[in-house]
Design a protein around this nucleic acid. Sequence first.
DNA 1: GTCGTAATAT
DNA 2: AATATTACGA
Length: 549
Amino acid sequence: MGCSAEDLVAWRDFPKGLRVLLLDEDATSAAQTKLKLEAMDYIVCSYRNENEALEAISMKAESFHVAIVEVTSSNSQGSFKFIEMAKDLPVIAISDVRCLSTMMKCISLGAAEFLQKPLSEEKLRNIWQHVVHKAFNAGGNDISKSLEPIKDTVVSMLQLQSNTERETSEKDQETKQDSSEESDRFQAPSTPQLVTGGKDDEYFQDPVTHTKDNLDNSTDLIEVRKYSHSKSKPVDITTSSLPNLDSSREDEMISRHIEEEVTSDNGSKTDECSSIKDSCEPSLHMNKGGNMESSVEEHKKKKSFLRSSSTSHSNKGDRRKTKVDWTPDLHRRFVQAVEQLGIDQAIPSKILELMKVEGLTRHNIASHLQKYRMHKRHILPKDDARWKLHRDSIPRGYMQKPVVVIPPFHSSYGLPSSQVYPFWGHPNYYTPGFPSWHPPQGNWLWKARPGVHADAWGCPVVPPYSQFSMPPQNTTLCNGWDASGGRNSVSKDSCDFNLADEVIDEVVKEAMSKPWLPLPLGLKPPSLDSVLNELQRQGIRTIPPIPRS
DNA sequence: GTCGTAATAT
DNA sequence: AATATTACGA
């Protein structure tokens, strides 16, 4: 039980999936904002002018929960117009402009908030509050359709919360003891950053991470979900509010502080440099502040790997069970690490290091790895043996050859390449933005997250038209698990490490020099991810359609 | 101690 | 359903 309460929650991952209308004339800044929003699993539709945007909300009012409008000196009229017209939606103005009267204008026209750029993650993350606010304070009018579910959700959550509290007090002590080991760990006050604070396994230091995009070692990375039983391990989820608590603790906020948060929070003084910057930086008027954001942006990426709904910071007392949300991004990192290490060295501890994701534990990885391997095994029975085979008998360093696969037969036999890589012909169908080592804009989240066609494992799903032409046993192709070897070239990605290197090279060479031929047995076409990854690595961001033959 | 696996718990 | 946890052998 306990699930009954959960069932009440209509929108379980709220505010994930929040639909955001973005109005921004400037393509670059729009793209930046969009990426940031999408990093939070918000769904973004962007428009370049107010008329399009207005049309959009009039046509399908229920498609949006909140609107974000970029206000610049040049387009302010349009922005104002939109703000004024879009009464049904909470509208948030964002701007580089630091001009009190502009702000006032926006607010007086009905904007819920005026956010100064650069936008920190927190600023954006919290926009849902306006949605909730609107949903509950629609000024007498009927709230718009899109906000109804929000209202329901909030109500459910509040209800759930109160249930939780009740149960908590009941079971409290009994369970405090049950996991003695655990309580030891979690109570350790000295673990400043990790949710689960175990020193034995967890990964703290990570000098690399810190040098690179540091700034935030203390922020939460892991999504903490409440298990039904976690109610019994209370430890002051609520009292734990820390001095420097940022307001991203959605769990609590939603359940407890809605009113206060909504009214007080706004940009929610993040501990981030952004707000400081904001206040220090003398007004650079009208300056689409693209670049300055990038550093901030940079260091934020990490944070969004693991959804951080709550539990920011140490949370000494927080013993709520943590569950890692293996988002496609996170999984991608995982896979990348695994492939980089190679089968033989892909062990939890090393993967953990490579992934450089704070808050992840070896256990998390081990668990995921277990699943990952099972998945692979299932899909590639022939590969099976390899995982077990002489893992230790192979000298470290041999590997290199990343995962590969020998499908029962080559899936693409006789098929034109456009069918092997269906998406190539349909660039619009699936357009992942990719992580890369030199992200063009410091951004690299999956653009298409919400719309990605993927199975539960993040496996890209082939578009229908190619599916019918491929035998169902061909699972290899839609296997996202081996995908995105990042740094590996396509060719490397596609060879079997069991074969002699020379043979491999030869075969690969052959295959590459004659792309029109079916791949030799033993080679599988590169995975979608690795191909896209590689393309992007080479600076190719958009994939031109392939002329069908 | 880690790692891999299976079973089991949440 | 997805993760975590646990137990056990290597």
